[in-house]
């Protein structure tokens, strides 16, 4: 039996990959299937009604609060992604092109460290920075720029965006860095040799070649941010709550898991659709250029 399983390279490879694969199937594919099923059921307090119905989806469609939350969530995720990637690109570029090879890992290490430190505490610290008596306000009052502390920087969507952009920064830098590292430096010399300036070389050679990294960065920031409820809870105030907060509330506070499941699925479908559209547009744009 064992000898048969390990007879060919393909079988040995499949045998080797099977533990993580089976784990993912049991712990991810099966549960996601479960919530899909769940979203077609209904719950009334503690009793679960297992008759198939589209009621949850109808409710999401009918009640404006869900649509508004979803729209705001996608807007926030979009802004966070744009801010993160645009701010991250120059850093990735700097580390890849202007840092000595021997120091590159030190830079990457410094960039990734904050990412690994307690997420909750980091979010809370932004509250300290942006709060009424926070670092920004007391600093600005101290040097006399303003008389009264600013109130528009905490408990709204802006605060959520700043905090999330900070949290996901390394996630954006690493894939862009990897893509930039792969660019053969003689291509840039070739472009300059063929008459392009340094500036136009960046747009005609470097940027298109770095695009796969940028796409990866966009996806790796955009998709997970939709599922975060900590930052909006702590930073968003009343007007900054997002769809993830609603999912959490449906599951834990209101005990309406089927509606929460339907909401989670709608959110995931929206994110997936937007991501696929983005990837497709990007491919088309790249092909259009070449």
């Amino acid at each position: 039996m064992w000898a048969k399983l390990t007879a060919t390279e393909a079988r040995r490879g499949l045998l080797m990959i099977s533990p993580p694969l089976i784990y993912v199937l049991i712990m991810l594919a099966f549960p996601i299937g479960a919530i899909v099923l769940f979203s077609f059921w209904t719950q009334d307090f503690m009793t679960l009604d297992t008759t198939f119905t589209l009621q949850n989806y109808r409710e999401i469609w009918a009640q404006p609060i869900f649509g508004a939350l979803l729209k705001r969530s996608l807007f926030v995720s979009g802004c966070v992604t744009a801010v993160t990637v645009i701010l991250a690109f120059p850093v990735a570029y700097f580390v890849s092109f202007h840092v000595k090879p021997s120091r590159k890992s030190l830079w990457l290490f410094l960039i990734t460290i904050p990412f690994w430190t307690s997420y909750l505490i980091r979010v809370f610290l932004w509250k300290v920075i942006l709060g009424y008596n926070g670092v920004v306000n007391s600093g600005l009052v101290g040097i006399g720029v303003i008389d009264e502390p600013l109130t528009f920087i905490l408990y709204n969507v802006n605060a959520v965006i700043i905090t999330l952009a900070h949290a996901f920064a390394p996630f954006a830098i690493l894939p862009i860095f990897v893509a930039l590292e792969k660019i053969d430096r003689s291509l840039l010399e070739a472009s300059q040799d063929l008459g392009e300036s340094k500036f136009s070389t960046f747009f005609r050679v470097t940027l298109p070649l770095a695009m796969p990294g940028v796409v990866a960065a966009v996806l790796i920031v955009f998709i997970p941010t939709i599922g975060d409820y900590v930052t909006p809870e702590l930073m968003g105030g009343a007007g900054g709550k997002l769809v993830a907060n609603m999912i959490q509330t449906q599951f834990l506070a209101l005990n309406n898991a089927p509606l929460g499941a339907a909401l989670a699925i709608v959110a995931m479908l929206c994110v997936t659709a937007i991501s696929l559209m983005f990837v497709a547009l990007n491919r088309r744009w790249l092909r259009g250029r070449s």
Binding site: M27, P31, I35, P224, T225, A257, A261, A267
Partner: peptide, 15 residues
């Protein structure tokens, strides 16, 4: 790696 964590959380909770 890219899945929103809340999805992982609620789906495992349901199961």
């Amino acid at each position: 790696l890219v899945l929103p964590e809340i999805i992982v959380a609620v789906s495992l909770l349901v199961v």
